[in-house]
């Protein structure tokens, strides 16, 4: 079996595993829709007060809300990806099993996480977005190229997101109990990705800083491609740059971690 086919199989496993819990998926869609509604009304008040805030008009701002709700679980901006499981495996020592599999640790988990992302995008991402589009006036692109450019941007975002969370998970090699790091990482992800407020709206220097950080690849970047606010190629380049940097950093930390791994127990 070729290496490529192995990782495709792992990704398919990740997809199927999350697809198993149908009731949980429906519940998640309900919750995402509820939060989306709250944000839509808040943004409507905000944009009525200051039209063209952050360069968006109201339909664009509303579209931004639903893109955010759709990508929240897909990219695990607020946590909930494979990192929790990986950390638990590091803590319990099960990671030793992963390490002597004839597969690369990082690619193995990347494949699992991409499979998960693909399911979350279809199962939990599409329904709230469709509901939003039915209920509200949204700025939907009319040409297929923009949709495809958006999807590719989401794929790059998934790589960046995994890169970030893999680094977080690896801290467990040194800290054992990663619940503190994971909480901080989730919070940063949730705030700096623009889940609460589009990063375009952040004022002054704070805005410039958050827009340069990797988290802006997660929601702001795909949303701007979708809304025609940013050039697709330069957005992809920004996301790809962060993906490469983070995945390379993950590789280095992994090398350091596996050198010092001491499997606990007898």
């Amino acid at each position: 079996m070729g290496a490529g086919r192995l990782y495709v199989a792992v990704a398919a496993g990740g997809f199927r595993r999350y697809a198993t819990y149908r009731a949980a998926t429906v519940a998640g869609v309900f919750t995402n829709t509820a939060f989306g509604l709250i944000l839509v009304y808040t943004y409507t008040a905000l944009w009525n007060e200051r039209p063209h805030l952050g360069g968006y008009d109201l339909p664009q701002a509303i579209t931004y809300v639903w893109i955010g709700q759709s990508l929240f679980k897909t990219l695990a901006n607020g946590g909930g990806g494979v990192e929790t499981e990986l950390m638990e495996r590091i803590r319990t020592g099960d990671v030793a099993v992963d390490l002597y599999r004839p597969a690369d640790l990082q690619l193995w988990w990347l494949a699992t996480d991409l499979g998960r992302s693909a399911f979350e995008l279809l199962g939990r991402g599409v329904p709230p977005f469709v509901l939003g589009a039915l209920l509200f006036d949204m700025a939907l692109p009319t040409d297929a190229t923009t949709w495809l450019a958006f999807l590719f941007s989401v794929f790059l975002a998934a790589l960046v997101s995994f890169g970030l969370r893999y680094l977080v998970a690896l801290t467990a090699f040194w800290l054992m109990d990663g619940s503190g790091t994971i909480q901080i990482a989730w919070l940063t992800g949730w705030f700096c990705s623009g889940m609460v407020l589009p990063l375009n709206v952040f004022p002054g220097t704070l805005g410039e800083v958050v827009r340069a950080l990797p988290w802006s690849s997660l929601l702001q970047a795909p949303a701007d491609v979708f809304l025609g606010q940013a050039d697709a190629l330069s957005t992809w380049a920004f996301q790809a740059m962060w993906a490469v940097v983070l995945l390379a950093a993950g590789r280095m930390v992994q090398a350091a971690a596996t050198r010092r791994v001491v499997v606990q127990g007898g």
Binding site: Y21, R22, A23, A24, V26, A27, G28, F30, T31, T33, A34, F35, I38, Y41, T42, T44, A45
Partner: peptide, 26 residues
């Protein structure tokens, strides 16, 4: 609805978020 526990979040966490904003916006 055992697996559907997340629905609850819409009313608990969603509820407290909703109440952080003025009623006039809804």
């Amino acid at each position: 609805a055992q697996d559907a526990a997340e629905v609850q979040n819409a009313f608990t966490y969603g509820g407290t978020t909703l109440l952080q904003y003025p009623p006039t916006v809804f």
